[in-house]
Design a protein around this nucleic acid. Sequence first.
DNA 1: CTGTTAGCGCATTCAC
DNA 2: GTGAATGCGCTAACAG
Lengths: 336, 336
Amino acid sequence: MSQINIKKLAAELGLSTSTVSRAFRNNSDINPQTKERILKVAEELGYSPNIYASNLRESKSRTIAIIIPEFGNNFFSQAIKGIEQQARTNNYHTLIYVTEDDINQEAAFIRALCNGRVEGVIMSASGEGLKHSHLEMLNEKHIPMVFFDRYYEDVEATCVTGNDYESSYQATKHLIESGCQKIAYLVINKRISIGKIRMQGYLDALKDAGLPADEELVVECTNDKEDIYRTVKNAFGHLKPDGALASVERLAIACLRFCQDEDINIPEDFKLICFSCIEIADVLNPPLSTVKQPAFEMGARAAEVLFEALTSKKTATRKELILLPSSIMIRKSTEK
Amino acid sequence: MSQINIKKLAAELGLSTSTVSRAFRNNSDINPQTKERILKVAEELGYSPNIYASNLRESKSRTIAIIIPEFGNNFFSQAIKGIEQQARTNNYHTLIYVTEDDINQEAAFIRALCNGRVEGVIMSASGEGLKHSHLEMLNEKHIPMVFFDRYYEDVEATCVTGNDYESSYQATKHLIESGCQKIAYLVINKRISIGKIRMQGYLDALKDAGLPADEELVVECTNDKEDIYRTVKNAFGHLKPDGALASVERLAIACLRFCQDEDINIPEDFKLICFSCIEIADVLNPPLSTVKQPAFEMGARAAEVLFEALTSKKTATRKELILLPSSIMIRKSTEK
DNA sequence: CTGTTAGCGCATTCAC
DNA sequence: GTGAATGCGCTAACAG
């Protein structure tokens, strides 16, 4: 059986293709009875308009792209859910691209998207502190973009992110109030957006408490699992901290592992808190205090901003920082 | 600035559109120098072929759909990575659809995909034991499909899944050898595919060990977090098991929570093992023994089967069960 | 190796 | 309220 198309359906119905087309779009006026008849026969014959022909004709795709550094962690999973919820209500499809934290990948994806595949982009940045010229193409192609969580300061676009400075300050303060005197800050890259902002909150909290805001206590790690463990081990060896704030979950998990291996008691000998959206923090060993970002809301909000731009035919979003509050969940790992 | 297209680019170059087109496709022969010149100018002018026009013209989309019951757990995240890796090497795009375990959603997605949006479907089933007539449409439209993990027995299609019976048998045997006498089996739905097969392995292991394979020990839960906790609590109350095999991670987490709340010592008073791909099982309280499915490989393998069908122009995959071995990771939660 | 020509399936003018 | 005609941007014969 050859595939059905609008022409065959029209022939079957004894109508013109334009009338059939009208039955599937809501704008044009059409006799309600004709419409109903068309839809009924279409259903029977398993016809639905070819998406690519429509896209071509209308030169719009009702599709947006999500570009994220990694996939499969709680934060991004929840953020994606938030985005998809909005996409669904706006009748849009989503395409997900994962950069593995590689800005070249990011650039490649952006380039590949500029052929009309998507109408807008929601992105968490992969290469803060590097060249971002690949984003200019979006501008040229009039494709609006919104950042969430991680963003480029030098790019004109709205960003929805957490109130990281404040949360970091509060988390550090909480460690101090729990009795910590020598608090390490664990970070992947301290020179860029979230790593940097969270560090500032941490440093200021130390300072305000009269503790030495010593940059030696800032421990930078790579993104590799084995490497992280080694770095943590090393840091423990020469810093001997009694507490730590981890800027991302992975680093805190490495601490838990290390403490387990070395029989360091948490929270007695060492207290730990981290930024994380993990849903099973309460059954970790020990239950882990977290700064929980509103991932779902971030995604949803970023999508809202994008769809607003899309429906009002704006070709870009305006430079603006939207901060959503995180909540500090205190558990055993930071008990006195 | 009006958008660039193949005609303008051709005009700019003093060439015909077909030559330009050839420069972007690898098949037709074209003067290497011409090609290079075209690609260079295209780069400068920010031209790339409109995807939707290509799709329409070639009537293929180089896109596949992934349909899964849920999103954001380790198993599906890893499986998706496996699929995407294969998709990338085959130069295909992926669209992800999440059903929230609702077969109506699944049917709606399938219907929406049949307008040519995708060339193939990789799916983990959401409604085992229910009507699956919505899948007939894929057949009519000649869209091949592959199941992974969860599948419909009554549908003709290849399925890539775990060796669940064997793993379940081994996991139960391990509990018995660790000293358990009264082992519960926790499951979301014992009448369907994975829940059913895993139960069979469990029951047979009990029987072979001379333990009563009592169906009372099979505890069925809903999919709701609060509900699961209540069911677990209730089961502990009247069954008083000394061990459990959980068919999915979520149920084991509820056990950990319950034991933590009630000061039940694991593994002394109660031993626990579950099917799970969780990567931080070693820092749970206590470290959790798991049956780890090869999620990434499953996804990759399912994608391989699909692409094989696609490249050989088959319109469906043949009914076949491909079993990939899981590995049992023994940790503290099942120690003697 | 390159150009000409003819659609892919659909949505939108513009007539009637 | 409906139909005829046109072209969205691209690719694949075919001819040269």
